[in-house]
């Protein structure tokens, strides 16, 4: 039986969130050293704005991964939803911001619900189901746009919502993170998600409706993806069918770095936030050390690998230490 060391050192190194915070602080300190004016409010705001899409969807991915699932259709849902509301504006059907967000959310929720139902009731592996829909929704985005796109002038009124300096995106991010933080820690529904991912059989036996929980989780993911699609149109001022192609991996990476386990049951909102933030800050910091944006992805990939391998290595060292303490 392992006896865990008590004390503050153990608490800090044992908590993923605390380790991430330390890394973040070190990073920010390094940046501050290299370029003192860097950490001005507008730069920080810029970081959030440029990564708002990833950060928002990461919340949904957290819930999905907590159930030991995965969703690679999110950027396709984003594109489908974004393209729809882009077209709605292009053809002057709807221009109301709130309505557009609601429509986008509804589209995303339906897409997500399909995922959830097929995965829970159809017993299909999440990677396969969401892969199929990845093709379907991306294709639909192209089909409805007829290979055209909604340009800046088409969405001009709407893009005011997300233009540089406008509070809209930040408010959405803040509200989303607060809601998820509360739900995941203090509501029964949130804890059910952890239970289902940790031990679905036990959850089922104890009366938790596993199928419903899983369906809801994917619906929420879809909803967020839908909202993100609308947000994307607003922030970038256009809607194209190939929006955010390939970016689903960024969202997954943010969660992984934030300590979310692919096997389910482990991960927090705070951790996810910091995972996304760390990746964002590093990307921003690269030019400061002389690496232009070409190197961004390479460095990002190396960091992800290093983080996960380091995780394994530290766990092994801790296990070995625990063994060494055993009296023989």
């Amino acid at each position: 039986m392992n006896k865990k060391e008590n004390g503050i050192f153990r608490k800090i190194t044992g908590s993923r969130e605390a380790s991430l915070l330390i890394v973040l602080i070190i990073l920010l300190a390094l940046i501050e050293l290299l370029q003192p004016s860097f950490l001005a409010p507008q730069n920080i705001a810029q970081i959030f704005r440029n990564n708002a899409l990833t950060m928002l969807m990461a919340l949904g991915m957290l819930c999905v991964m907590l159930t030991a699932g995965i969703d690679i259709s999110i950027t396709s849902v984003l594109a489908f939803s974004g393209m729809t509301i882009g077209l709605l504006q292009k053809y002057d059907v709807i221009h109301n911001t709130l309505l557009l967000f609601l429509i986008g959310a509804a589209i995303g929720a339906v897409c997500g619900m399909l995922n959830g139902l097929i995965i829970s009731k159809g017993k299909v592996a999440p990677i396969i189901c969401t892969m199929g829909f990845m093709y379907i929704w991306r294709g639909m985005a192209y089909v409805i746009s007829n290979n055209a796109w909604a340009s800046a002038e088409d969405v001009s009124g709407f893009s005011d919502f997300g233009k540089s300096g406008a509070p809209g995106p930040y408010i959405i991010l803040a509200i989303a993170y607060v809601i998820f933080f509360i739900v995941m820690k203090w509501t029964r529904f949130g804890r059910r998600i952890y239970a289902v991912g940790s031990n679905a059989e036990a959850a089922r036996i104890s009366g938790i409706n596993v199928d419903k929980t899983i369906t809801l989780v994917y619906t929420i993911m879809g909803l967020l993806a839908g909202i993100t699609g609308v947000l994307s149109v607003s922030i970038y001022g256009s809607a194209q069918p190939n929006m955010q192609y390939g970016k689903e991996m960024d969202v997954i990476a943010a969660c992984v770095i934030g300590g979310v386990a692919m096997s389910g049951g482990r991960g927090t909102v705070v951790g996810t936030f910091m995972g996304a933030l760390i990746i964002a800050v590093i990307a921003k910091a690269l030019p400061l050390v002389g690496l232009d944006s070409l190197w961004q992805n390479l460095v990002k990939g190396i960091i992800i690998l290093v983080v996960v391998i380091l995780n394994v290595v530290t766990q092994r060292v801790m296990d070995r230490r625990a063994l060494a303490r055993r009296e023989m």
Partner: peptide, 20 residues
């Protein structure tokens, strides 16, 4: 490490090397 995560990382690295 789940191979999904490993190849997620290497996926970004390999393409990153190509980009550079």
């Amino acid at each position: 490490l789940p191979t999904m995560i490993i190849t997620l990382g290497t996926q970004i690295i390999f393409r990153g090397i190509a980009e550079v």
